[in-house]
Structures are given as structure tokens and as C-alpha cells.
Design a protein around this nucleic acid. Structure first.
Lengths: 211, 211
DNA sequence: TCACATTATGACCGCCGGTCACGTCGATTC
DNA sequence: GAATCGACGTGACCGGCGGTCATAATGTGA
């Protein structure tokens, strides 16, 4: 039924509107004090309606986080210009960091959902989402590392070990970029942080871990 | 007055008891649902008493975080066995990561207080505390890097850049260690994560960032 | 036109962080 | 040692939050 489809579409469109409203509100520093009532008001729906779409406030925020990471994954998966393995790695890291800079409005929400305790008390379905996301990033990045190793540009060692180091460094860099210059250990613009982080990651790739 | 001093000491002792009680409660996964009432009950004081010592729940948690980082700083400042600059760096990094493993019970609180938004809405006095802490770590770590550079073990570049990379990598590694094996991208024990992170950081130090 | 199913709604509930008027008790003063 | 004082301890209380549910509204199929 076309009529039925329209209802479904409208339902989904409303969901997007709710997410957009929530994101807009959660982009401010007093993110912690954003209430479901405010989100409902901004999305121009009743508060109860929120709970038709999301079982809880946490689920709403979780969905926002998913939207962010899926967007990143989609962007990373668009075909890249070929080049040397190292150049490709550098480009990819830069692109991913840039994505975080551009979509800065997600920072509070994403950091909120990345908290250990959030993951630990998340229900099984979400944890599966988390894991499949992690896996997707892993499956996508590992070949790049392997290619660089095969080409002899970086020393041979377990890929998992390299990925872990890169991942840690990346996460830390994102925290700094999002934190803003006002408290960061170095008072640096995001671009400077990005550049330094990339250089450190490249060094970490090509350097000798047994030095 | 000795009598006066005793009152002061008892007041401080009570404060420690409150912090201990809060830490014990906040070490569980449902950290988010720990209430001031529960903390008061566990510390065997009235709820109002908490507010004699701490202006808000956030301040209480903030003080816990300070206790954690001051402990780390104190441990790092104890004299180290001398050695090659690189060996010293490696030892120091290992020690700091180890501290995070050992004091795992602080993980929820520390991560909570390290959130961007927490810092942004923190009152000026706390921000000063944050910054002096950052500065202390910086002032303490920079000479180690400079020594390694002077010795020619690692390529010359701005110290700030190296510190930033190390810091990012360190933060990320801590997140992984604290997150536990159940969701971590690699299902690794903390020791494995620590080892991999250290190797990556050493590689990042000695590697050529312009490769 | 009418029964029915689905979605939308906001008054309402339990609970939490934070407040405040009051009680307690040791110190100080004479 | 009685009176006074003031700093500290306390828990009943408040406003506001996340979440629920009985009811209204809306569109669907016969």
C-alpha cells in the first residue's frame, strides 16, 4: 500500500527530526542539563512521542552516536586516490580526524556514549552494534597496514598490535581536538593538533618498536 | 590550640571517609546511579554533611579525580633508576600505565571528570586545578624528551609536538585498559594492551615523522 | 458511516540533587 | 561552672528530572 508506506516514511522522518533537535540542543556546553522535555519541544512533538521512537534518553543519544560513526565509515569507504601505502595511510588518518573536526557538534554525545560505564550497562543489542562498528573499522583498516608491511615501509609485527597503537593515538587526538584550545595542554588550534598527531602516528608506524 | 587542631583533623578525616565511601560506591558499573544519599549512608553521615565538605556532587567527584592524579604525580616523582634516555622513557610510561591498572577503581570517576563538557562547565577554581595538573605533568615529562633528543636517540622536532602525540596515545591506551576485554577491539588483557601501547609509543618517538 | 488499529499526547509518578531551619556540643567568657 | 556563642550535623523538604499510561486524535478498511 502506498498509503501505508507514506505513514512509515513520515514516522521515520519524524525520528530524524527528533534526532536533529536533540543534536542541536546537545551541541551546547550544558549538554548534561538537556532534558527530554526540551528535546520534545524543539522537535515540536509531545514528550511521550519521544518514547515511541526511543526506549530511553540513553537510547536516543546512542542512536545519535551511531549516526556519527556510520557517517564516518561511509566517508572512509568512498574510493580513495591510490598512492604509496604510507601516503594512503596518512590520507586516511587525516580524513578521519577531519571528519571529527567538521562534525564537532556531536562531541558531547559521542564522548558520553563512549564512556566505559555506558557500554557496560548498555543492553545486548547496543553492544552488538558497538562491536560490529568496531569490527567494521578493523576490517577496513587492517588491509592498509598489511599493505604497508608487505611493501616493507613499516617494520613487521602483529597487525593487531599496530592497530591498537594507532587506535589509542587516534582516540587521544580526537579528545584533544574536541576539547578546544582553552584547556588543552598545548594551546593549539585543531589543525595543529591534527598535524602533530598524524606525524606521531606515522612515526609510530615506521619506527622500530624494539629500539 | 591543640583542641582546635583535633577538630580540624577530625573534619579532614571525615572528608577522607566520605571520599573513600564515594569511591567504593562509584567503582561499580552502575556508577551513574550512585546517589548522594547512598554515599552519605555508607560514610555514616547525614546527607547534609556531604554539602559541608563539597558544594555539589560534581565537586565531590572532582576531588576524587584530583586524588587519583596527584597520586600518580607523586609516584612518578619518586627517584628513578638511571639509564639510557629511551629506557627511562619506557620505564616511566610503563609505570604510569601500571598505575592506571592498579587503581582501576577510579576509572568511572576519572573518565567522568575528564569529559570535555565537565571541564567546560567547571568553575574557575577547578579549571585552575586542571591546568596546574596538566602543567605539572608537562614540566615533569618534557626534560625526558629533551634528553633523548639531545642524545640523538630520537629525531629532533618541537618537544610540544612529541608530547602531544605521546599524550594522545597514552590517553587512548588508558581508555582501552580501563574498558576491559569485553568490548575492546582486540580482546586483550590489560598487560597486552600496555605492552602494545608502549611499543607503539617508543616507535612513535624514534620513528621519522616525515617518512 | 462505522468499528478498529495505530500513533500522539501531557498529566502524573517516583526519585534525585540540593537547601535550610533546627538541634547538638565543644569552646570561650566572666 | 553558668551563660553564651558559633561551627558543624542533620533529615524533612523542594523543584525538576526521566519515564509511564490512560486518553484523544488520526487515518484505514469494510
Amino acid at each position: 500500500m502506498a498509503r501505508q508506506d507514506r505513514r512509515v516514511r513520515e514516522f521515520e522522518r519524524r525520528e530524524t527530526e527528533i534526532l536533529d533537535a536533540a543534536l542541536a540542543l546537545c551541541a551546547t556546553p550544558d549538554f548534561a542539563s538537556v532534558t527530554m522535555g526540551q528535546i520534545a519541544e524543539r522537535a515540536e512533538v509531545g514528550k511521550g512521542t519521544l518514547y515511541m521512537h526511543f526506549a530511553s534518553k540513553d537510547e536516543l543519544l546512542f542512536r545519535l552516536m551511531l549516526r556519527f560513526y556510520r557517517g564516518l565509515l561511509a566517508e572512509l569507504r568512498t574510493p580513495q586516490a591510490a598512492g604509496s601505502p604510507l601516503a594512503r595511510l596518512r590520507a586516511v588518518i587525516a580524513q578521519a580526524l577531519h571528519y571529527h573536526e567538521v562534525h564537532r557538534e556531536y562531541r558531547y554525545v559521542v564522548q558520553y556514549c563512549d564512556r566505559i560505564e555506558f557500554r557496560e550497562r548498555a543492553d545486548p543489542a547496543w553492544r552488538a552494534d558497538f562491536q560490529s562498528l568496531d569490527r567494521a573499522f578493523g576490517d577496513w583498516g587492517a588491509p592498509l597496514i598489511e599493505a604497508a608491511m608487505a611493501a616493507g615501509v613499516i617494520p613487521c609485527r602483529p597487525v593487531a598490535e599496530v592497530m591498537l597503537g594507532l587506535h589509542a593515538c587516534f582516540q587521544g587526538a580526537v579528545m584533544m581536538i574536541w576539547a578546544g584550545a582553552d584547556w588543552s595542554p598545548l594551546e593549539s588550534a585543531p589543525q595543529a593538533v591534527r598535524a602533530a598527531a598524524i606525524r606521531f602516528m606515522i612515526a609510530g608506524l615506521v619506527g622500530d618498536p624494539d629500539a
